[in-house]
Amino acid sequence: MFELISSNPRAYQSVAFGAILGAYSRLKVSNHLLHNLNQKYFAISIVNILSCFLLGLFSSLKSQCYENCLKDFDYLFFCVGFVGTFGTFSTFILEVFESLIEGKWRLAVTLALVSILGGLLFMYSGILLGRF
């Protein structure tokens, strides 16, 4: 099934548009968290947790109503394009790396634990919400 879709040029389009939307919204949300709420270190982990919630929601919606609400191109647009670009691993690792270089071990461990446990929890709640 996947090879059939990926030969279609519309698939590339949907991934690309989702990526643009995801990147802009990540920039806006993290800038808002940085400047207005003064969350210097936890901005990107909040964005990551949000993206986990959205991925759980969309994937359970996709598995629930097969043909009706989310088609394959919409799945590519939302899950691969939008959510995959909205949540980022590299900036998260950069924050952990920076705090390790500055010698703040506790902050690095807290950052990693908060993002991973929060991501798991919020993805599970998104899956439950999609079933509901």
């Binding site: 990526a19 990540r26 993206s51 986990c52 949540g87 691993f89 590299s90 900036t91």
Partner: peptide, 22 residues
Amino acid sequence: GIGFCGGLTTFSGVISDSLGLI
């Protein structure tokens, strides 16, 4: 940094893989 690396890496994929394992 923000465009290419942020688009290339994904956090939610890792979490969804591990949630599937759990």
